[in-house]
């Protein structure tokens, strides 16, 4: 016994740390990463590598040389941003475009606000949207997955893109979606961003996060419910113009966004009801953009818009205090 430590209570701490929580998210993303590599081939691994490396390096450089503070890369949040960014772009994206995306994600959306915990918008999404509007060619040219063991790559639009284009040319939804079956959508045999590829892998990660109590399921579930309900109503009104609920749930970045981006601690409301309203907002905006917007996909925009109202939601939806009305 040397000198006794004296400190205010409590004297013990749970095993959770920022690092362990972030590590759990990384683990939850592993199935999706493996799937994307399997389906898209080694090129996807390169995208992932460049994205993660540039995010981590950038955060390290900014903390060390600009903020002159101890490095924060040990908390793994930059790794998550890197993986999410990679999963949000097509595997054919050139490496320098990804580096620009990382600079926007980490440099602009995260570190300028003061680093982890201070940012208003999800960094990976800001990076992704920046790339989408700046380099639309790279970001919207999808290729049919070649895969590790697959066939030759065929260029083509995503299911949502196909529908959007087709509708503009006067075709009906039934004609356009007949080419896809739900099994393909679930098990990923379609073009799209790397992370949009396998719904089951993403859902497995989501279940893992819920079981580990890293995230609460309310946000994700309310997004799914709203998307399903909104599209059910519109589809019911005019099945020729509007896509059906199952198609909407399984296509695009909805599952990735709902499970991993909307549930980001920093940019989502804290209370259960705040989360539900947040989720409903995302779901509704997503469907509005998909049905009426000029972009085929709206999850990224919907999440970013709802990120902006999080402070308000945190103020409006507070937990009931003990013994108070």
């Amino acid at each position: 016994m040397s000198k006794l430590i004296v400190s205010p209570s409590p004297h013990i701490h749970s095993k959770d740390s920022t690092r362990s929580l972030m590590l759990d998210v990384v683990i939850a993303l592993i199935p999706a990463v493996i799937c994307s590599v399997v389906f898209y081939g080694w090129q996807e691994l390169l995208v992932l590598g460049v994205s993660v490396a540039s995010c981590v390096l950038l955060e390290w450089a900014i903390t060390k040389y600009m903020l002159k503070k101890p490095s924060t890369i040990g908390d793994f949040s930059a790794v998550i941003t890197g993986i999410l960014l990679a999963l949000n772009v097509p595997y054919t994206t050139p490496w320098w475009v990804i580096v620009i995306g990382s600079i926007v994600a980490i440099g602009v959306a995260k570190m300028t606000f003061g680093g982890l915990g201070q940012n208003i918008w999800n960094p990976a999404l800001v990076g992704r949207v920046f790339l989408l509007v700046s380099f639309p060619t790279y970001m919207t040219t999808w290729s049919q997955p070649q895969g590790l063991f697959g066939v030759d790559a065929i260029s083509g639009p995503t299911p949502l893109g196909t529908v959007q284009e087709g509708l503009m040319q006067g075709a009906t939804v039934q004609e356009l979606t007949s080419a896809y079956n739900y099994k393909d959508l679930l098990f990923a045999n379609l073009g799209g961003s790397a992370g949009e590829v396998c719904a089951l892998a993403l859902l497995a990660g989501f279940v893992y996060l819920c079981c580990r109590k890293v995230i609460k399921p309310w946000i994700t579930l309310s997004i799914f419910a709203t998307v399903a309900l909104t599209s059910l109503i519109f589809w019911g009104i005019d099945p020729a113009r509007f896509t059906d609920p199952a198609f909407n749930l399984l296509t695009g970045g909805l599952i990735l966004g709902a499970c991993f981006m909307a549930t980001d601690y920093v940019t989502s409301p804290m209370s259960v009801w705040g989360g539900v309203v947040f989720g409903v907002g995302i779901g509704f905006l997503t469907m509005m953009i998909r049905y009426f917007g000029s972009y085929p996909e709206g999850v990224s925009f919907a999440i970013l818009i709802m990120n902006s109202v999080v402070p308000l939601l945190n103020m409006w939806f507070k937990q009931k205090k003990f013994g108070r009305k």
Binding site: L21, L116, M270
Partner: peptide, 13 residues
């Protein structure tokens, strides 16, 4: 019992 150094609030709630 040793406290770990405090990080940023990540607003996890």
């Amino acid at each position: 019992t040793r406290r770990q150094s405090a990080g940023n609030c990540i607003r996890c709630g």
